[in-house]
Write a protein that binds this DNA or RNA. Structure first.
Lengths: 198, 198
DNA sequence: ATCGATATCTTTACACTGTATAGATATTTT
DNA sequence: AAAATATCTATACAGTGTAAAGATATCGAT
């Protein structure tokens, strides 16, 4: 588990962590494999025994970033219930906020997670829904169960909601929309889905 | 205008065009300044008299890509009226389709256009609306004029529509949603905006 | 416990990158 | 025509990803 000299012990996860850290700071385009290796006191070629190449390491870091987003979303949900604010609508809104906040607070991780590095062919058809997706659908189910969202709208609103939230997050992040656009969008979504009749 | 030897004549725009071409083929991350210069029969350092560095050239290429998207959208609008299909709703839908199609047909240009390279600070507050944005707002105005979209919804639907269409385009592009999601989204949008009551 | 096989890491090396500097050549200005 | 300037080349350097071969530690079987 530690590094007694020649062998590192757990270089693979150390490399992954190092990649995430450096991407977080300077962005995926500017991370150097040699720098990550240097941080760990390891030779430049050492990584190749654990990852086929630099891209593969960045891809792994990207999936770790997706997981961090999901963590953030679950944390936001738990915060909501601790604060005392209740109701599916509040939880739904908190979910959107945490998504946008993650994009703005961790721009480099967000770009990596939803960028070309993490495109997995046939990942759609496979029955491996990403955690973020699961969390969203669960929130929509809640809305239906509480009678706030008509069952009729349920199916198609999955795509609409995720697309809209993801879109506004990236457009704000890349300077195409002002930060206030996020709350405006949440208002629109709530209104259009008929969630604000209470 | 041509290249009589030492001086190229119009190297700046030639570099820009070369950058767009190469990004289109292999993606921004894999284009090399030297390769672009080589294509033009010019030394590796020549570019530095026209662009401060490689990033600046790629940024310029990115804005060219945004313009290509706007071209595509206008072309789609003109196609619609030639075909004979009329009505603001059809035009609105064609706009969304062309946006998604551009993302899927030119993934590398799309990523560059809406990526970190083209973030212009304070571009939001300035009165320099991008062409794509202008086209969208014009389409929404049409919908209002034809009585299809309530004036009350007009303002906030700008953000909602652009976010949703941009979001679904990127999520499909990066393998997070299946291609059919685009049409589903258009249906939802039309329905939620109350555009399908005819 | 020893010996061989294997996994892990280092060393060296190579082709390639962006770009700084200085010099050459063409164009423009006076 | 001469001087000033814009444009391009040549050379050079530090940094990159990674292939190849050698060193060292760990593991499995005897």
């Amino acid at each position: 588990m530690r590094k007694p000299g020649y062998h590192h012990g757990d270089l693979e996860s150390a490399l992954l962590q190092g990649a995430v850290d450096r991407v977080r700071l300077v962005g995926a385009e500017k991370v150097s494999l040699r720098a990550i290796a240097g941080d760990l006191g390891v030779s430049p070629s050492a990584a190749y025994h654990h990852f086929p190449d630099k891209d593969a390491l960045l891809t792994a870091a990207g999936f770790a970033a997706i997981d961090k987003l999901a963590d953030q979303q679950e944390l936001a949900l738990s915060m909501i219930s601790v604060i005392g604010v209740d109701g599916a609508l509040a939880r739904f809104r908190a979910l959107g906020r945490s998504y946008v906040d993650f994009a703005l607070n961790e721009p480099h991780l967000f770009r990596l997670a939803f960028g070309e590095h993490c495109v997995i062919p046939d990942a759609i058809d496979s029955e491996a829904p990403t955690r973020a997706w699961t969390i969203l659908t669960a929130a929509l189910d809640e809305l239906v169960n509480e009678g706030l969202l008509k069952f009729e709208f349920r199916q198609k609103s999955e795509i609409l909601v995720w697309s809209a939230v993801h879109g506004v997050a990236t457009l704000i992040l890349e300077g195409k929309l002002p930060p206030e656009a996020a709350d405006d969008l949440f208002d629109s979504l709530a209104h259009m889905l008929g969630l604000d009749h209470e």
